[in-house]
Amino acid sequence: MPERTATIASRSGLHARPAAIFADAAGDAPVDVTIAMEGMPAEDALDAGSILSLMTLGAAKGDVVLLRAEGDGAEVALDALVTLLETDLDAV
């Protein structure tokens, strides 16, 4: 299954506005994307399109997360989402 790691760049972590922007983008992706903290078992991965899941994940700035997706367009979608996570979304 295609996967990517990303380091959270937003100052406030994956909360608030950054979480909203990311959840919106993940929800619009053509494939289902999951997110987990690095080292977390794959079955505990959460739906990346769910803002509530992202908030309970509690990823702070500098934390590394793992994104997974399968199907047509998974690679492209993951690349775009990694870029988003590695941007300081508090600043945009």
């Binding site: 506005r17 919106d24 769910s50």
Partner: peptide, 16 residues
């Protein structure tokens, strides 16, 4: 705006 955007996303949240 930011509060409304986040709240809108919660309304169709898959987890909920």
């Amino acid at each position: 705006k930011a509060v409304l955007e986040a709240t809108a996303l919660m309304a169709r949240d898959t987890m909920l």
